[in-house]
Design a protein around this nucleic acid. Structure first.
Lengths: 239, 239
DNA sequence: CGAGACATTGAATTGCCTCAAGATTAGTGG
DNA sequence: CCACTAATCTTGAGGCAATTCAATGTCTCG
């Protein structure tokens, strides 16, 4: 088993999922990947299905191969808040935790690459780079959560919707943070999900979208397809 | 240098800070603590002073010895949001990050136990328990952040203020999560800071506090001193 | 083509904010 | 020790943004 030269930047093929990505597996060498692939399992979930519930025990970790996952918290009276979104290549799971503190639901059709809990934790034992990679990912999640706290606590409805559109645009074109361009994508969330993420009502989300359309900051076709002619204008709108 | 028997639960004395605590140092043995103590430095900061700014470089990590620290994010137009609070024994800093993504400000007078960046990172290299402890702490922070996202996104002003009072009560009496009792403490934040944490205006915070007082869920003396006769009633009010 | 889910729009209401005025507290110097 | 000041907090009145309730419109899939 010869190991290949490794740079964290370069996406690599995960044998078990048959996709190239730059997630957790980017810190594994060929031998480790091969080893891991013997235990991974691909799974598919259709939009709306629950992946795991709040307070349930954790049986496996997963990498998102495709699709978008909502991490949600629900209050007793039914009010709910999306506290995070997981996209392709994102890692799902809480290392060394025994139970979940939130639920996960497929926002779109989703493909996962699942690893049994014990396997990944065993790998972590003698793999510092992997452990550090997970730490970095966790810190990034923390950053995102705090960034979103500002949005929820201090931004107006219009700014929140613009922030969301910009967030998705950044995922479609990461280099956007540096250069403003035109971006085009399909919204991964329904109006209802957007509302739960933004802390707004469905109606307010809808109204703010039409407002952004009137200002020609976005063009929306078929409810879902979005074109942003000038991402810089959108960013300014996001507060 | 003989090492002492170690349990993670038992608080231990940190030589450099002269306090007993259960933070990061709880995973270090006597020899390691002694070694660390040669590099730590106690520092004091008065209420309102900035500990570090957004986008500044990180030169040292710290443990909070006493007092409360606000982690803040500020928008260009001046709106600000407190995205986290740090209490005694909490760890401050982003391991392996080069710059801060938020600013930290002393909410009350604060004592820190500071460790130079390089020292802690060197310790991490050959100390798995310490690294894992930091991972756990980070996951706890993430949980707290997400919990607060629900508060910011979905709770009413009254519920938010109640949530805050309950949060502080839990810090004063951690066992409260299990048994409801009477709790009494001094608010660590001004009305303005509370407003920034809760995503409300100062006036709304004030009004909601008087509302809670009218309902006899809290008794407030001298603006700052709070007594909660029945924490269970408060918890229900928090949504 | 029709049914059901999803989305938009309008009208009325409510909750929080803003602006403005007092009240309380803490700190200062006579 | 007390008056005086500045800072912090409380309270009220009015306005506005977002919600709720209700109806209509649009897309998707059998």
């Amino acid at each position: 088993m010869s190991s290949v030269p490794l740079t964290a930047q370069e996406p690599r093929a995960c044998r078990s999922c048959n996709v190239r990505y730059s997630g957790i597996c980017s810190v594994l060498d060929a031998a480790q990947l091969h080893d891991l692939a013997r235990h991974t399992r691909a799974s598919r979930h259709q939009a709306g299905s629950e992946l795991f519930g709040e307070e349930t025990s954790i049986t496996s970790y997963a990498n998102v191969v495709s699709g978008v996952i909502k991490l949600m918290k629900v209050l007793e009276d039914g009010r709910q808040q999306v506290v995070g979104l997981k996209f392709a290549n994102d890692f799902i799971g809480r290392v060394h935790a025994t139970s979940n503190t939130l639920s996960a639901e497929a926002a779109s059709d989703v493909e996962l690459c699942q690893v049994p809990r014990a396997i990944l934790e065993a790998m972590l034992e003698d793999n510092r780079p992997l452990e550090q990679k997970l730490m970095q990912e966790t810190l990034r999640e923390l950053d995102e959560a705090r960034e979103w706290m500002v949005t929820l606590g201090r931004k107006s409805a219009g700014e929140r919707v613009a922030s969301f559109l910009y967030l998705i645009a950044l995922h479609v074109r990461p280099e956007l943070a540096l250069v403003a361009t035109e971006v085009e994508y399909d919204l991964p969330l329904t109006r209802g999900d957007m509302a739960d993420f933004l802390g707004l009502s469905i109606e307010t989300v809808s109204r703010q979208l039409t407002q952004l359309r009137r200002l020609e900051i976005v063009v929306i076709r078929n409810k879902r397809h979005v074109t942003i002619p000038d991402t810089e204008r959108l960013r300014l709108r996001a507060g």
